[in-house]
């Protein structure tokens, strides 16, 4: 990733593409995009990765999180006229962090792998809710309607899932 950002290294970008494109293809297809539409969205996403690579801040988010953010925004933009609004750190109204939390940030990439393990360990019904939210862009209330569950049930199941993930990450950090 650094080679792409600092040296505009095309070989490094090709490696990144080979790794992420098949996953992005799956992500785009989850929302029912046809193959060629999905490829176009994958290309748009990776093009943005290339253009914005210099601004990638490994202290703030892992590579996969950063690429997820770009892919999500591309997907939303594809069915909206206007781009998804983004927070701009150069905005005069922006309120910066009171203190840079260096420790949090160092752990961003490391915890990404632990998060993946924790997600795999979630009970099926909790994982399903997260998949519907992240892959199908359904709000919590829309998920309730789709599953015929009261909103309160969806919210409490999601809360259980998030708490489980957090506990898992805490334990992983204590052991490392």
């Amino acid at each position: 990733m650094r080679a792409v950002g600092e040296r505009r290294d095309r070989d490094a970008f090709a490696t990144l593409f080979r790794h992420f494109a098949p996953r992005l293809q799956a992500f785009m297809r989850r929302l029912g995009s046809a193959d060629d539409q999905a490829e176009e969205l994958v290309q748009e996403t990776m093009l943005m990765v290339w253009r914005r690579a210099e601004s990638f801040d490994p202290a703030r988010a892992g590579v996969r999180t950063w690429i997820y953010q770009i892919a999500r925004n591309k997907r939303i933009d594809s069915f909206r006229r206007r781009g998804r609004p983004e927070v701009d750190v150069n905005d005069p109204a922006f309120v910066p962090d009171p203190e840079p939390s260096a420790v949090d940030r160092l752990e961003a990439e490391q915890s990404a792998e632990q998060l993946r393990v924790a997600l795999q360990a979630l009970p099926r019904e909790q994982a399903d809710l997260l998949h519907m939210a992240y892959f199908e862009h359904r709000s919590q209330s829309e998920i309730g309607v789709a599953l015929g569950l009261p909103l309160g049930t969806v919210k409490s199941r999601t809360r259980l899932a998030l708490e489980r993930l957090r506990r898992h990450l805490q334990q992983a950090n204590e052991h490392s």
Binding site: L24, Y68, A112, Q120
Partner: peptide, 17 residues
């Protein structure tokens, strides 16, 4: 967002054209 990143990383890979 990191949850989104982890879910993305864990998707079964699909053949790109």
């Amino acid at each position: 967002d990191a949850i989104g990143g982890a879910l993305l990383a864990d998707l079964p890979r699909e053949q790109v054209a």
